[in-house]
Write a protein that binds this DNA or RNA. Sequence first.
DNA 1: TTTTATTTGTTCCTATTTTCACAAAAAGTA
DNA 2: TACTTTTTGTGAAAATAGGAACAAATAAAA
Lengths: 221, 221
Amino acid sequence: MRKEKVYISQETVKRLSLYLRNLRRLEKEGVRVICSDRISELLDVSPAQFRKDLSYFGEFGKRGVGYEIRRLIEELEDILGVNKQWKIVLIGVGRLGSALLRFEGFSKFNLKIELAFDIDKRKIGKVINGVKIEDVQRLTERVKEEGVKVGLISTPPQVAQEIADRLIEGGIKGIMNFAPVTLKIPEDVFITNVDMACELERVIFFLNNEGKVKTDSKLLS
Amino acid sequence: MRKEKVYISQETVKRLSLYLRNLRRLEKEGVRVICSDRISELLDVSPAQFRKDLSYFGEFGKRGVGYEIRRLIEELEDILGVNKQWKIVLIGVGRLGSALLRFEGFSKFNLKIELAFDIDKRKIGKVINGVKIEDVQRLTERVKEEGVKVGLISTPPQVAQEIADRLIEGGIKGIMNFAPVTLKIPEDVFITNVDMACELERVIFFLNNEGKVKTDSKLLS
DNA sequence: TTTTATTTGTTCCTATTTTCACAAAAAGTA
DNA sequence: TACTTTTTGTGAAAATAGGAACAAATAAAA
Ligand SMILES: NC(=O)c1ccc[n+]([C@@H]2O[C@H](COP(=O)([O-])OP(=O)(O)OC[C@H]3O[C@@H](n4cnc5c(N)ncnc54)[C@H](O)[C@@H]3O)[C@@H](O)[C@H]2O)c1
Ligand SMILES: NC(=O)c1ccc[n+]([C@@H]2O[C@H](COP(=O)([O-])OP(=O)(O)OC[C@H]3O[C@@H](n4cnc5c(N)ncnc54)[C@H](O)[C@@H]3O)[C@@H](O)[C@H]2O)c1
């Protein structure tokens, strides 16, 4: 039964996305039905966690049987919203940006980078993966025009705040930021920072404290 | 006073890394001393959180004054282990891998990719950013030889598990994985998954549930 | 039909994380 | 020196998240 008011944590959302990807993989392998115990073996998530994550949104399984994969994929796509088309804009077509632009992992599933901007005259006009790189000068205007709602920032950190401001002015409501800066954004805009340097330093921290570490996620100092 | 036995959460470690980066930036701007309230304005972390994170490792501030930035930078570098040299190996020099290889954000601070491997004959032998791309066939052997302890996996997901196994056989103790798969690794190896597709879907989830969203990290369904 | 096997959905409990709030410390001021 | 202001470090409280455990549901077996 659907709940009246439930707060979904960001950790849950991350896991939903993880479930979806792996269910798709399983379906491709010909699996039709799966139970939470099997999911748990595959991913690093407890069976109870899997069931609980889903329970926030409804009842998708059959007791004594498990989950019909096709059905669950569709439910998850609906929950996450990836069954709809979302226009994405990329700003900063440098080394990382052009990797993102060429990456099929997004576009495979309705998440397609449709606009790209850079400040570098040599890049403007070039077409990568079917997307023409435009002048960042026209960013706000073009974002409004196209009704884009999601932005990926892969510019140098120095200009990332300015880019974010202009995206938001253009109506962007969700940002994935790769620049190593903490951006100031209004409450109604969602941001996720992909911070590779932090991630790498986390690995280093673990190594540096080897022997003193207790579990996979804890350290004993 | 240093604690006998304290467990440090991964969230704390991420924040330590964030603090370090921003303290470096502040120092460059000429700031000498900072208090937790100012840090809190700059980053998206409460002053109490900042103080508590640091308190797990010692007392670095001065009451009524704040934290001497130089001192704190050095303490954090020591805590994270980034004051030591760490050899890093990259596997899969494709679009993402070559961006990583060329990225100065890591190498600036003792985190240097020193070995790179690929399976593609056209890439093997090429030099990027001073690093010669080697044949992945010799991966385990070379990792042992060089005593590398950290590995970045940016190969296609299909081969990521195999690469991880060979890295671990070679003595790797920390992995940053960019391939969208859940890798099976032994307890004593640390792994962090940089999962951009999940992150992007998290943004989409927020947009898809707009209006029903309560706070920056919670959703009302 | 009854019994046995599974496996979900959910409640309740436990553990972890964050925030609060304040004594203790430092430095300036009178 | 005594008083004021500021800000840390931290124990206690509040908020969150995770996990165990079990009734309810389903299907298969007897
Ligand atoms: N390369 C990596 O592997 C990597 C890893 C982690 C984080 N990052 C971060 O991602 C961002 C991009 O990194 P990169 O290595 O691709 O850098 P890059 O220099 O290769 O690319 C940056 C691009 O942004 C463009 N640009 C600069 N100012 C601009 C502006 N005002 N408007 C629009 N475009 C502008 C540049 O012309 C360039 O094409 C940086 O913030 C970096 O710290 C990169
Ligand atoms: N490009 C992106 O922006 C992006 C974003 C998110 C995730 N990823 C993930 O990162 C990984 C790399 O992506 P990419 O876009 O760079 O792909 P890519 O195809 O450009 O690069 C993959 C590289 O790995 C090499 N490779 C293949 N098999 C190998 C093996 N057995 N041993 C060593 N090297 C091998 C290939 O030769 C190639 O150079 C993928 O798993 C992808 O899903 C990429």
